[in-house]
Design a protein around this nucleic acid. Structure first.
Lengths: 222, 222
DNA sequence: TTGCGGAAATTGATATATCAAGTTTCAGAT
DNA sequence: ATCTGAAACTTGATATATCAATTTCCGCAA
């Protein structure tokens, strides 16, 4: 009994390295504004402040540099580059990538994918008037994930994930408005329809507009 | 004599760190296929092979991981994840980002920007029949750079730059065909017209199609 | 032969020491 | 008072040592 997939390999995710942990800490601090743009970071101070050595910190900073949140000048220092303008550009990047994913999804979507999207929209519509914002947020995420799965674009999905900068508080704040939930559902419905109809151009455009519109709402909450 | 800008600060770019050097070496090796997808990397072997310690190598690998070219499993190893499918997705990512940049450029373009783009297209048109492919490639790049400048989107530009995976050989091969040069000029002309006319939607669509079309040509040369 | 430890070897993760570029400070000359 | 320049100090870059998780290998028992 039990096929080849009865037991999946243990995800290495469970063992979070110090490096990844620190990366998350510093990233959140930057996005939350506790570390402000222009500020200079001192590797030794930061490492001792975190109670770790410089090795994992350096690696974490390297990742943040690759993501464009900090800039490192050899033998000079590390400066935080993130600011409001970059936040807006990251939102635009998300719009560009997410809409390209939607375009690909419209080309490759299966009937099962469509069924799942419709299901999720039905659930969201039911939750329109309820006040369980947390569940609405979760459904929101699952809807976008369904499109990602349908697209089959693992790399684009990953790259897009790196552009997410909204805090949980901002999400909560935005979707607390009933009008915002209504707009989200309507836009999701339109996107799902376009994908189900296998119309890449339309799906791409709708997704772009959706991400930009709701993104600008989020950016205002900062 | 000499204003405040008579001498600009020295760019820290001149002092390339070992880490950055190694990063470039490994990245090129992956993109060129000398390190194949699925292959496992050994930090110590690789470091001694390169004649360096593991510290700068680890940092370089961290950046490659952030870019999605390798995947690191804690205490297991580092595996190369890049393959043909990812190459296509990186091309799509470039299309998505470059077209978003074109869209922004169409919103913010100045008359000077337009003049520069037109100049470059005139030069490219003159070089259509010549066999100086290298110069054509350079003009190509300058044209795209002109759009980047016009857009004012530093972060998007940087993110887009990370999606460039074509080797010099591939570029050379593709643009060696006169028909390909002709297509490139016509498409650039159309994009420049859309931007000059301040039509974001059109500019975005034309740029996307241009990047995808020429990108697919490049991907065939592997 | 098969399956189950457990020791040994590997190897990435982390810590620490050293190197060298860059910055700051201050005494001394003009 | 101002400029110069060398020494002291900072600090990121690099190298090396140690730690700990994982894998490999081998012998013993069923």
């Amino acid at each position: 009994m039990g096929g080849d997939d009865a037991l999946l390999p243990v995800e290495p995710v469970f063992l979070k390295s110090l490096r990844d942990h620190v990366y998350g800490l510093v990233r959140d601090a930057i996005l939350a504004g506790r570390l402000k743009g222009g500020e200079k970071l001192n590797e030794r101070h930061l490492a001792s402040q975190l109670g770790i050595s410089t090795t994992p910190l350096k690696e974490a900073l390297r990742v943040l540099e690759a993501e464009g949140l900090v800039r490192s000048e050899p033998r000079r220092g590390i400066y935080i580059t993130f600011n409001a303008g970059q936040a807006e550009e990251m939102m635009l990047a998300r719009a560009a990538l997410e809409s390209m994913i939607a375009r690909q999804a419209a080309k490759r979507v299966t009937d099962e994918d469509i069924a799942l999207m419709c299901e999720l929209i039905v659930e969201m519509r039911a939750g329109l008037e309820t006040v369980d914002v947390l569940q609405f947020i979760a459904l929101n995420e699952r809807f976008h994930n369904a499109i990602h799965e349908a697209s089959g674009c693992g790399y684009l999905r990953r790259l897009q994930g790196g552009q997410n900068i909204y805090t949980h508080a901002a999400r909560l704040s935005v979707l607390s408005e009933e009008r915002e939930r209504f707009l989200a559902v309507e836009e999701h419905q339109a996107i799902a329809n376009a994908i189900a109809a296998r119309e890449p151009d339309l799906a791409e455009r709708l997704m772009r507009d959706h991400v930009i519109r709701s993104g600008e709402k989020h950016l205002l909450r900062v």
